[in-house]
Design a protein around this nucleic acid. Structure first.
Lengths: 284, 284
DNA sequence: TCATTTATGCTCTTTATGAGCAGAATGGAG
DNA sequence: CTCCATTCTGCTCATAAAGAGCATAAATGA
């Protein structure tokens, strides 16, 4: 991210109608210019254009932002020239990280705030609608936690007025995260949901991995992305059995325990199956 | 679709910065105005902005189109005032319909044209890349047919110069379909892929169905959307077993054979499972 | 009455998934 | 040198889902 008005902001720039033949190229141009990081897998994400998304825009002016999701290899470092730096996405949206059960109290705080919001519904009908939505997002009354619904969760917090973006106080950053510039947290939430979903039917994780890696390293990346922990043996079985990876024969011995075999992505899987990916637990 | 330059075109209009507070509203405004059809499920699809997508645009001018995918109830009829009318999407992209094996020769014609294209690659490397891509799209060397890859297939035909949009002759409309205005066939291909994918993890089919329906009717809609036929008994088992539908007790007797029970969508399934949908055959 | 058509119920096999037990191979502490 | 903590890896077992097909039920029309 870069800095903008003292807050973290996604790198962005304006479309040059003469220079950029396609939107993808414009995005690549600005991405390189602002971060110096070479992009891997790239996909258009969403176009944001609400009239009030940029409070600084002049009246009658409209700012459209065409957001892109890109994966880069193994934490490539931003160029020194750029002011860009990596920011843990979960510092912006801590509620999306359910790997450690260190502070379930944070989730509880959100849950009770959201429940209070649904109670404030004007009519019985609206209360019920809010409650159902809250349940789908936050798994309050029994619906499972769906990692893919990160945008819905952000929008739930936004509309409930719990975030600074929509007038909330949200003091405890461990719970409510660090605000970003403009609606960039919303964009992040979209991207996160998209990436998590994509993971289940396209082998995009490997865009984030070096050429060879241990299965544990792969699992850690998947877990970081999805925000939940996975059963180790089953994960191994899944990726090996599905033909997503193949062993290289060599091994890595900086594991802290028994050395691990190094694997590589099996590109052939793309031709063998139409939708190869990581299965998310309980998602069906 | 409406008519534009003598060709079928998707309904569209320009964003009014003063009038439309959100992009969604602008889309709804134009949708109603141009077709008179009330929209059900709506989702932003993709923003198209290549410099050469509108040949009529003035130099230095750039036309951005923010496309939306919307589902409407059971073939609602366009208002008389509008010039809009329903067009079978498969008349624009016949290759996407693999339900009837009436003319496998059409697919064969496309396959051989695509194979010829990959042979025309400049280098050995490019040939191989084209061949892999052709295989993924058209299931030439053994990859399965993935209904979701409709956009990739359109782009394959486009880049191979086989469609009028990219200079091809494409006389036989049974094979190459009816051209639409501008890049609207590309937009259709995007929408089709998105809708097909969505089907697998969200119960969107029911947006296309009346309140009650027979399982056969439901299956026909799914088959029409996905473009392949399904095993009848297994389809029934899937939707009933997954809790997507529930019987109403009453029955329909215009089936032509034994009367069928009428079912309705089970809304509760949304709370029971995070990603309820129809499983597509062979897609994994 | 019987052939035709569509709907529905059930079985059988194969493959995935969720959960856990147990052994193998390393480094470090004593 | 031994023991132990740590991590990797192989395996089993129960349950669920998916692919394919057989068989029966309930209508219509010749």
């Amino acid at each position: 991210m870069v800095e903008r008005d003292g807050r973290p902001a996604l790198p962005s720039g304006t479309l040059d109608p003469a220079l950029d033949r396609t939107l993808d190229r414009a995005m690549a141009r600005w991405g390189i210019q602002l971060t110096g990081v070479p992009l891997g897998f790239v996909e258009q994400l969403y176009t944001f254009g609400d009239i009030d998304r940029d409070p600084q825009a002049a009246a009658g002016e409209r700012r459209l932002s065409i957001a892109y999701l890109a994966f880069v290899q193994d934490m490539a470092t931003p160029s020194d020239a750029s002011k860009a730096r990596w920011i843990d996405m979960y510092s912006l949206a801590p509620w999306e990280d359910r790997r450690a059960e260190v502070s379930p109290s944070a989730t509880d705080e959100i849950r009770s705030a959201i429940t209070a919001w649904s109670d404030r519904g004007a009519s019985v009908k609206e209360k019920a609608a809010r409650l159902e939505r809250a349940d789908l997002c936050w798994s309050i009354a029994g619906a499972g936690w769906d990692p893919v619904r990160s945008l819905e969760r952000y929008e739930c917090l936004f509309e409930a007025g719990l975030l600074p973006e929509s007038g909330g106080s949200a003091k405890d950053q461990e719970v409510w995260g660090t605000p970003a510039a403009l609606d960039h947290r919303r964009i992040l939430a979209s991207a996160l949901g998209r990436a998590r979903g994509k993971l289940t039917y396209r082998p995009v994780v490997f865009e984030l991995m070096p050429a060879t890696f241990t299965l544990s390293a792969l699992q850690h990346v998947v877990e970081a992305l999805v925000g939940v922990t996975l059963h180790k043996q089953n994960f191994r079985r899944l990726v090996e059995n599905a033909g997503l990876v193949e062993g290289t024969g060599s091994r890595s011995d900086d594991t802290g325990g028994r050395p691990a075999e190094l694997f590589r992505f099996r590109r052939e899987v793309l031709r063998e199956r139409p939708a190869p990916g990581m299965h998310l637990p309980g998602r069906r």
